[in-house]
Design a protein around this nucleic acid. Structure first.
Lengths: 205, 205
DNA sequence: TGACTTTTCTAGTGCGTACTAGATTTAATC
DNA sequence: GATTAAATCTAGTACGCACTAGAAAAGTCA
């Protein structure tokens, strides 16, 4: 009973690591098994199929990302500032996906390679996550803090997109941290690149 | 001589279409051949390998995207307005990748799935394309039109990322056009979502 | 038409994949 | 320590993949 749970966790971790670095296609059952010193057939004692295993890793990744954003929003002191809420959410997402563990990264990295069955399995999770952001934007527009002349769904997707794509170029070895990326995304999508906007605050990166 | 060129073009088109819709992994030589009524083996009379064929499709896609942005910038009337330059470039990119043909879309859609050999083959093309955007941002900052307190490389990658990720959710059947997406990206990253920024212009989408 | 070249097809190879069956070892229990 | 259960391994299957060799067909031009 104990041994099984430990091995199971080891398999999940190895799968998350592989998904996060090389993506779904290049993640083979054999490579997962090898990375933890097992035979590929032994994996099937713990998981019914590759996609079942991958699916569970993606579930964990989604939960971790949602939790990170939720926790950041819960710690907000000023509950009345929609821009600040957007800021902490964006930075929390950036840190979870870029600087965090393998699980959230596995989600983003593998997204475009998943077989249709796995995509539909996680559609609900993605929709729920999108809903968090939709709420933040709606609050901002309705309170007057955010402009209302843009399509809110498109705005939401652009923010998430800018953050998700960062995984393609972000390098942990560089001088720019995950939080820095989040701060940049926030500054750009909320206050804009244009100079002489009154509400921007200088960033020192 | 004539027949060969026509078939060759047909193969390239079919490959671009497949890459743009299902990505690199799901694009098999057999599926390409079937879509144009051929046997898979016949493909190898025209191309040495799958990756050679895919590589040529990606080359064409990069050229088309670069050309679209270059052409849009060349048509600029006011050469002194860096924000307007950024705007037409962003919209041109959006139209090329989202609304345009299969070739530019193939690039973005397959990006994360390519084998290392193909990635390095196209590294130069990507760097050249990034250079166009770097130039636009540098011009803006140096003329004072864009703020200088953000990391320019990060800003560039965020803009391109927001545009590239749009391929994951953009649906041609919707009421939002490719140019609309571009306009939204421009409005957000240049003027910001925040209300009461003086230089924004209302968008009606 | 007939000789020649270009193009496509038929029929296969070898390899890597996910996955299975059954023997074998390791761990827990009495 | 013997018995039973849990966990892993050995050895395979079937399938889809990129790719090859050589025969067959389709064009091309005198």
């Amino acid at each position: 009973m104990k041994k099984s749970d430990r091995t199971r966790q080891e398999i999940l971790d190895a799968t998350a690591s592989s998904l996060a670095t090389v993506g779904y296609t290049a993640t083979t059952v054999k490579s997962i098994a090898e990375s933890i010193g097992m035979q590929d057939a032994s994996i099937y004692y713990h998981f019914a199929s590759k996609d079942e295993l991958v699916g569970q890793v993606l579930d964990i990744g989604t939960s971790l990302a949602v939790d990170a954003v939720d926790r950041a929003l819960a710690e907000l002191t000023d509950l009345k500032d929609p821009r600040e809420a957007l800021r902490v959410a964006i930075i929390a997402h950036a840190e979870a996906v870029l600087g965090g563990g393998d699980y959230p990264r596995a989600n983003v990295r593998s997204f475009g390679q998943l077989p249709p069955e796995l995509v539909s399995r996680h559609r609900k999770g993605h929709r729920d996550y999108g809903q968090i952001w939709m709420q933040l934007i709606n609050d901002g527009v309705e309170s007057g803090a955010l402009r209302g002349d843009l399509n809110r769904s498109v705005a939401r997707l652009i923010i998430i997109g800018a953050l998700c794509w960062a995984i393609e170029w972000f390098d942990t070895g560089e001088e720019v941290s995950a939080a820095d990326v989040g701060e940049h995304v926030f500054q750009m999508v909320v206050y804009g690149l244009s100079a002489d906007q009154p509400q921007q605050h200088a960033v020192s990166v």
